[in-house]
Design a protein around this nucleic acid. Structure first.
Lengths: 208, 208
DNA sequence: ATGTGTTTAAAACGTATGTTTGAATCTTAC
DNA sequence: GTAAGATTCAAACATACGTTTTAAACACAT
């Protein structure tokens, strides 16, 4: 059954990419960790680029479905609501398809820097429309901001979220050294919700 | 004069690293752009790793000096004060040593992901103490937060700042397509100050 | 059981990388 | 002007990479 090989490659790639990044992880490292032949990657995925995209797609495809479903059921959501909506969608996909062990969040941090690379194009082409809808929902609940100011605050929020979530593992370890308690992921996520809300509640301060 | 070669390498490396990242930029690309011989990098810097660190050090060494000087002169600063203090320090170093053309901010985005790499160690060893002092100043102005909650908010803030500043170029271009105006960097920086302040003003919501 | 299409295997290919070498050139001090 | 040191240069080195190739092993319908 080829499916097994494909899954093992995806699992190994996801966890190795999350540890070291894309360029820093070779196909030989991945295939060795997966216990499959080197050529299997090119046979099943075509190229390393396609493998990277497949790792993202395995999580983001069901995530997109879930978040669209939830968005269709919501009415006049607040920023908080939208944030929790995204969090719950991610949690559900992680539990349902990955036994809660997905490391995709760490990959987002790497992907974001890859500013002009193939990953960005892949994201925009495949998930851009859903992302637009999501942003529009947030926009509708923040009418006190001009569109330019809103745009920058969305990016502040994305930075804070992606950065914190993707670095959660190392950050929670460092924090443990400091105050002798490892903050559970869900507590950290709950803590961030009101902070993000306050980022959008802050009064407008750009000249329109 | 070797100094000229060294400077040309640093300049080329800084701008190429900022465009594509560290691993994705080869020494041959750098030396060609700088108009120097390939071996010059190893001769003057030792290795590629050392070159990367030197690129950071060229900016961060005077930046550290400047920010320490300003911190020694401040009394009971607010979060806003501390943020503006960092911004002004960066601006001054950029103007004084780089004619306002430094691209170091974009490199920070790349550096941050390189979680377990040599860059992180270099940062901690070389600038960790100053960073600690900076954080303590912010801490003093946010007594309503427990230390755990404060820790996470510092990281939210770092994420929002590093992410937005390091991606400013592409973000401002995308924004221009959307609302027909390219937000100047200083306006974006001014816009972020009250938002960050509000992130720390938000009431505590973690159980102590 | 046989034949067909799919998957795996080992090996090699071509290219790109960081680094090192040793001679040539330039700089500087006497 | 010449010797000594610092710098540049072209070339080669060793290694690692993604990808391709060709044949063997496998699955499975007939």
């Amino acid at each position: 059954m080829s499916n097994n090989t494909v899954t093992r490659i995806l699992d190994a790639a996801e966890s190795l990419f999350a540890e070291r990044g894309f360029t820093e992880t070779s196909l030989r490292t991945i295939t060795t960790a997966a216990g499959v032949n080197l050529a299997a990657v090119n046979y099943h995925f075509g190229s390393k680029k396609d493998l990277i995209q497949s790792v993202f797609a395995r999580f983001l495809d069901p995530f997109e479905l879930e978040i669209r479903r939830r968005m269709s059921e919501v009415q006049n959501p607040s920023v908080q609501d939208m944030l929790v909506l995204a969090q719950h969608s991610a949690m559900q996909v992680s539990l349902e398809h990955f036994n809660g062990r997905s490391q995709i969040m760490k990959l987002l941090g790497f992907a974001y820097n890859q500013g002009q690379g193939h990953i960005r194009k892949f994201f925009i082409n495949r998930y851009g429309e859903t992302f637009s809808q999501y942003v529009q929902h947030v926009r509708a609940s923040t009418p006190h901001l001009g569109e330019e100011e809103f745009y920058w605050r969305i990016n502040f929020m994305l930075g804070a979220m992606i950065f914190t979530v993707s670095s959660y593992d190392s950050l929670s370890e460092i924090g443990e050294l400091e105050f002798s308690r490892k903050t559970p992921l869900d507590e950290m996520l709950t803590a961030v919700v009101p902070v993000v809300q306050s980022m959008f509640d802050a009064p407008a301060n750009m000249k329109s």
